[in-house]
């Protein structure tokens, strides 16, 4: 079956006064109908740049210099403004990083959702759209009566739920959730994530979760892509990424978050910080922080290869690493 979304060799660069920032550099992945994928990485590694490229919500100084993004066979990169507006929300909806500020303070929350429905479905009447919003409110666990309230009358968690309801309003094929729960406390976070996963399964939508927190992603995503410095360094199904991580960065990410179920162990931080994408090096970008780096890593960029079926890694020494991990354990 043809995937609902296919990103091919996407390169999105920012033109800044200091030079070109390669925020997304040669990104490729596919997303099937009903599949949920996680995009994980540190702050500033280009996760949001990838999602903004898919929505074509680029800043003025941002350019997609190369690559294609196929949504149901149509290349989003080549569409004009009117065509892309049709795909936004009805095809690909988004839950933004700052849900707290994603609602316009001067309009009622319900009306903002209705606005999206009416913009995409000209045949729907106002009453029908109100009924749909009421259903969505029930689905995300909000009282439908609250749709006539203004955003400032909502709590943080309620706003987040309203945003989720909004993202579902036009029955999109894909929802991109960019740090959907970062602003919430852990308990609400967990509740909302579980609900989102439930709704996603129920409606058979595709989902892209974006987070810096691999533990959060692990709960909801079937497939995980690890991003580092504008590149995908490892991509596989969630089980493989957890059980047999091949890239040293993935290992580092996993050991820097506590696990509730696993045995107690010391949290390890990854030394150093991500490289400045302004002067991204030509060699492996993780080499300066990598405990396994060899001479080769400092000379060439590793290829993004399939080391076992459906397990893609961009590293010269994925084998070494596996031994190393088992020794530690």
């Amino acid at each position: 079956m043809r995937p609902v979304l296919e990103v091919k060799n996407l390169k999105m660069y920012y033109n800044t006064r200091a030079g070109i920032v390669k925020a997304a550099d040669d990104i490729s992945f596919t997303l099937a109908q009903g599949e949920s994928m996680g995009l994980v990485g540190e702050s500033g590694c280009g996760k949001t740049s990838v999602s903004m490229s898919i929505m074509r919500l680029l800043a003025e100084n941002a350019n997609i210099v190369n690559g294609n993004i196929y949504f149901k066979g149509k290349d989003i990169v080549k569409l004009n403004d009117e065509e892309i507006n049709k795909i936004r929300w009805a095809g690909i909806a988004m839950i933004f990083q700052a849900a707290m500020n994603s609602l316009n303070p001067v309009y009622k929350v319900g009306d903002q959702i209705i606005e999206a429905i009416l913009a995409h479905e000209p045949n729907v009447t106002f009453e029908e759209s109100r009924a749909r919003v009421a259903e969505l409110y029930k689905l995300v666990g909000l009282d439908p009566k609250r749709m006539d309230n203004y955003p400032h009358e909502y709590s943080g968690g309620m706003k987040q739920r309203a945003i989720i309801a909004m993202s579902l309003s036009c029955n999109p094929d894909i929802i991109i959730a960019d740090e959907p729960t970062t602003a919430l406390d852990v308990i609400v976070q967990d509740m909302i994530l579980k609900e989102m996963a439930k709704i996603q399964k129920k409606l058979n939508m595709s989902m892209i979760y974006i987070s810096h927190d691999i533990a959060v992603i692990a709960e909801v995503a079937e497939k995980i892509a690890i991003m580092y410095a504008g590149k995908i360094v490892e991509l596989s199904d969630a089980v493989t990424v957890f059980k047999k991580p091949a890239h040293p960065y993935t290992v580092g990410l996993m050991s820097s978050f506590p696990s509730i179920h696993g045995e107690k162990k010391k949290l390890v931080t990854i030394p150093g910080e991500p490289p400045n994408l302004l002067n991204a090096p030509d060699h492996c970008r993780f080499a300066p922080r990598c405990p396994f780096a060899t001479k080769e890593c400092w000379e060439k960029m590793p290829l993004y290869e399939e080391i076992s079926p459906n397990h893609f890694v961009a590293c010269f020494h994925p084998q070494n690493l596996r031994k190393q991990v088992s020794k530690d354990a």
Binding site: L57, N85, I87, M94, N101, L103, N104, P105, A116, A119
Partner: peptide
């Protein structure tokens, strides 16, 4: 610069609606 402007764009609203209804109104 506000996030709700990005939301309005993401909703696929025409440019003028985002400008007048969401940005200018606020």
């Amino acid at each position: 610069k506000e996030d709700f402007i990005t939301t309005a764009r993401a909703k696929g609203l025409p440019d003028k609606v985002v400008r007048d209804k969401h940005a200018a109104r606020t």
